[in-house]
Amino acid sequence: MENKIRILIADDHQLVIQGIVCSLKEVGDFDVVTTNNCDDAFQLIKSNQNTNPFQLLFTDLSFDNTTEDALLDGGEELIKAIKNNDINIKIGVITGHTETNRVYNVISNLNPNAYLLKSKCDATEIGFAIQKMLVNDYYYTHEIHQKIMRRNIIQIQMDDVAIQILKELPNHPKIANLEGVIKKGDGSFLKLRSIETKLGNLRSDLNANNNTDLVLKAKELGIID
């Protein structure tokens, strides 16, 4: 029992909780605790923190049963509270919310290790997500991943410097040669260090393995012609 991975599930719908519990049983042998509100979830995490801590948390984002006197009125608040208390627990979001703003807000600000959608989720996906989460990696379900990718593309598109780098990259065998070519908005040249940082970000945003891959992907995605 001591070695079992402890998982806490928070959702306001009993049916969903049951579904997840069912799926988890298919994935492996976990010590699963469930709750239908955020305040209880946070209390469970905190009280077990030193004795028998949870390794994973799956939570919904919106809780309809939230009452007026609830301290944490949703998944976002719960995640925030955990992050603020510096509790070492990997968080996965299982929700129906696909609105880009909400997704973006959760991913960029709360940085959960997984983002799953109830409608598409099954045991296989949960298992895959758990694997990633346990090694502190990230897993976003396909739809969410696409969203984030598109968003990155848009952002890169709006970024003049990024466009310049992507365009100039194939013309220069060495990255160092880009120094003195890339201009900032105010007309000054970008330092090599900044160029390298930017390239790193671009690679991660577009899931590129290396710079050649980055340019190829950028072309593929229509960021550059």
């Binding site: 880009t100 703003n101 973006y104």
Partner: peptide
């Protein structure tokens, strides 16, 4: 929770 600029980017990315 999200800045207007991000909202617009998100909106664009929804259609992109």
């Amino acid at each position: 929770k999200v800045s207007f600029k991000d909202q617009i980017i998100n909106l664009i990315s929804d259609f992109f």
